[in-house]
């Protein structure tokens, strides 16, 4: 597992320790600890697993077992934007496969991958609970429904536009 250089720098044992201690008073709180670490870093860095093990006394092997059992946990860093494509029943019937195809085209990443420019990670999920608006995707936590290939094109270029603004802002 390769940790992106940038991500490694940002990793702080102090943050991880604080998260572990906050929950440690509660029985069985190991999943919330891992969830909060993922919330902080966008993924569960392997070094964090080691650190949590030392902190809590739960063996790293067991933590690894948990992380790989639950679909929510990622062991790879995320792209800047996260797109979750719904493949629930209603979305499937309304052409979710076509939605995936379009996203792959405009974003440059298949489901389960991050685009080369690091802008997008695309994930596959089973039902976002907005079935009446199928087909749906979730972009950075917000659900978008009644999608068409054209609407996706627009959505993605909006996100890209924003990134550009941020970038030029940083330069200037």
């Amino acid at each position: 597992m390769v940790i992106e250089a940038g991500a490694r720098e940002k990793l702080s044992f102090a943050v991880i320790d604080a998260i572990a201690h906050k929950h440690n008073v509660e029985l069985g709180a190991i999943i919330p600890v891992l969830q909060e670490i993922q919330e902080a870093y966008g993924y569960v860095p392997p070094v964090a697993i080691q650190r949590v093990a030392e902190n809590t006394g739960v063996p790293a092997s067991e933590l690894f077992g948990i992380v790989t059992f639950y679909a929510q946990f990622r062991l790879q860093p995320l792209g800047k934007n996260l797109i979750k494509v719904c493949h629930g029943t209603a979305c499937h019937l309304s052409g979710a496969e076509r939605i995936s195809q379009t996203i792959e085209q405009v974003v440059g990443a298949k489901e389960g991958e991050t685009s080369q420019d690091g802008l997008f990670t695309v994930e596959r999920v089973a039902c976002l609970g907005c079935c009446s608006l199928a087909p749906c995707i979730m972009v950075n936590g917000k659900v978008h429904g009644r999608l068409t290939p054209e609407a996706i094109g627009k959505l993605v270029s909006q996100v890209k536009e924003k990134e550009k603004v941020v970038l030029s802002g940083e330069v200037g």
Partner: peptide, 20 residues
């Protein structure tokens, strides 16, 4: 944490206990 089987009651309790 994204496991369908955890809707099943005994699996759900395992998950609350912090296990697979």
């Amino acid at each position: 944490a994204g496991a369908f089987v955890c809707g099943e009651e005994t699996a759900l309790m395992m998950s609350i206990e912090g296990r697979r």
